[in-house]
């Protein structure tokens, strides 16, 4: 019996994430069209709602080309690594408090890990493999340069990401994500309690997900496509999927750490039935993640790309000192 519950949760989250990815691409195209004063895809289905289906079918039907000089095994392995890393991070994120269904209390997270935050950091540090290996195995200059840039970028920003979380950990006093969410009850979100930590973490998340203004690994004017230049068909689709899955995961982490997770102020006091409260909390989590995702998309279409040296300067000379200063400030404030 005990194995069914996690399995159901895994399938549930898997389906939700995949559907969200498909529609996130559509939302991104529509939002970018809106920002650029265009209309965007609106032909397939009502208001373009079936566009993702058409895209997926197209990706599956395309020819899968592997370059002759490529290392075939690694070339196929790299997109899988990217996707697996992006999806498994979700295992420790609490997307709701607990729900009472079929006579049992179900905790709304797949794996209740003691060191949840470290698990997230460890997995996101593995994401660099997919990109580096794809760049290396393609045997193409542009791919290799894209892969190398990405590794340098991810290693640099991982550091400030890890350090900026410490502020939250010091206040919460735990590495468990569910406890961190619980400590943000009644609107005491870490977003206002540690603003510097929030800002550095969000910027580092942008860099970790390779989104604009940090998408140097795939800068089209200089690198053609970057690390996925030599990929086609569904393998390219997997990278695409991984990028958007990474965005969802990053948003979910931001919401969990800084925006109160599934907490919805005042909802516990109205006197709603427990099931309704649980569902509202899940909905609150979904809405928060959606808003952060929208923020990701709007940023992409409004801010230009950094130059490579600027990127490194920000990472090492601005972000790192800020994250360190935040630890000091939080420590002093806690002692007060």
């Amino acid at each position: 019996m005990d194995i069914i519950e996690p399995l159901v949760k895994i399938v549930f989250i898997f389906l939700i994430t995949l559907t969200t990815v498909a529609y996130l691409v559509l939302v991104e195209r529509r939002v970018s069209a809106f920002i650029q004063n265009r209309i965007g895809p609106n032909r397939v289905g009502p208001a373009g709602l079936l566009q993702p289906v058409a895209d997926i079918v197209k990706l599956f039907l395309k020819e899968d080309i592997v370059p002759k000089a490529a290392n075939k095994f690694v070339h196929s392995l790299a997109p899988l690594i990217s996707l697996v890393v992006a999806m498994t991070t979700f295992a420790v994120i609490p997307f709701g408090n607990s729900i009472h269904l079929f006579g049992r209390d179900i905790k709304l997270m797949i794996a209740d890990v003691n060191v949840g935050i470290l698990y997230i950091l460890a997995l996101s540090s593995l994401g660099v493999y997919g990109i580096t290996l794809s760049g290396w195995s393609s045997n193409n200059k542009y791919s290799l340069l894209g892969g190398l840039r990405s590794s340098a970028q991810m290693i640099s920003y991982e550091l400030s990401m890890g350090l900026s979380i410490i502020g939250v950990l010091m206040i919460a006093g735990t590495l468990r994500l569910d406890k961190i969410v619980e400590s943000q009850a009644q609107g005491m979100w870490y977003f206002w309690r540690t603003p510097i930590s929030f800002i550095t973490f969000v910027i580092a998340s942008f860099a970790e997900t390779n989104r604009l203004p940090f998408d140097l690994p795939e800068a089209e004017p200089e690198l053609v496509g970057g690390y996925h230049t030599e990929y086609s068909g569904m393998k390219f689709g997997l990278f695409f999927l991984a990028e958007y899955a990474n965005m969802i995961t990053a948003s979910a982490i931001i919401v969990t750490l800084y925006l109160g997770g599934w907490q919805l102020p005042f909802v516990g006091h109205i006197g709603l039935p427990d099931l309704a409260v649980s569902l509202l909390q899940i909905a609150a989590f979904g809405v928060k993640v959606g808003l952060v995702l929208l923020f990701f998309i709007v940023i992409r279409w409004t801010i230009p790309r950094f130059r490579y040296d600027q990127l490194m300067n920000i990472g090492w000379k601005v972000m790192l000192p800020l994250a360190l200063a935040n630890i000091l400030i939080t420590g002093v404030a806690l002692l007060w």
Binding site: L118, A122, L123, S125, L126, T132, L144
Partner: peptide
């Protein structure tokens, strides 16, 4: 648990990436 996650974080996510970096750069470039 802590040691296990730190092992992945430090060795796989940090040290080995740099190692691969060095190996790939010297063999390819």
């Amino acid at each position: 648990d802590f040691i296990a996650v730190t092992q992945v974080l430090v060795y796989v996510g940090g040290i080995l990436v740099l190692l691969l970096f060095g190996v790939m750069l010297t063999t390819k470039v």
